[in-house]
């Protein structure tokens, strides 16, 4: 569970340096783990694959998804506005136990899936017991 604690501590503390206007939102995520990998699912509605930037550096995973406004400025008159549209950004401290050459990600229906395979060193290994 060391990974979960690390995620908890740093999450939300890293601020993106905005290079364009607009609001930045923190996506809702699920973080899962099994023997082989950590799996991260993030809701990034409106983001296309080419607009998503994922970086893993010094044990820190950063997700940035660029989302452009979907309403034409000027003409539109809002009658109900329950959410805002803007980029998604979030960082996670994952420790050093991730094999960064094997990280792969895909996006489908606005959900980003990032597979973070563990390094061989930290994978649990079952030791076969033989009879003498």
């Amino acid at each position: 569970m060391t990974t979960a604690t690390a995620v908890e501590k740093r999450e939300g503390k890293v601020r993106p340096e905005p290079t364009r206007g607009g609001r930045i939102y923190s996506p809702n995520v699920d973080i899962l783990e099994n023997r082989e990998e950590l799996l991260l699912l993030a809701d990034v509605p409106g983001a296309r694959p080419e607009d998503i930037n994922i970086q893993y550096e010094n044990g820190e995973l950063t997700i940035h998804a660029r989302v452009d406004s979907r309403t034409e400025v000027g003409e539109a008159q809002f009658l109900a506005c329950e959410y805002g549209v803007g980029d998604f950004h979030r960082s996670f401290q994952l420790g050093e136990s991730i094999d960064n050459s094997k990280i792969h990600a895909k996006v489908k229906d606005g959900v980003l899936t990032v597979h973070l395979p563990k390094t061989e060193a930290v994978k649990p290994r079952k030791i076969a017991v033989k009879t003498a």
């Binding site: 509605p45 034409e72 809002f78 109900a80 329950e82 229906d109």
Partner: peptide
């Protein structure tokens, strides 16, 4: 947090109303 899902935006432009909702992961 709002306890409704999905959140909905509604706007009008000329003779048309537009409604939009973010429902990631729904096919």
């Amino acid at each position: 947090r709002p306890s409704v899902f999905p959140a909905v935006n509604v706007w009008e432009s000329g003779d048309t109303l537009y409604a939009e909702a973010e429902i990631p992961g729904v096919t």
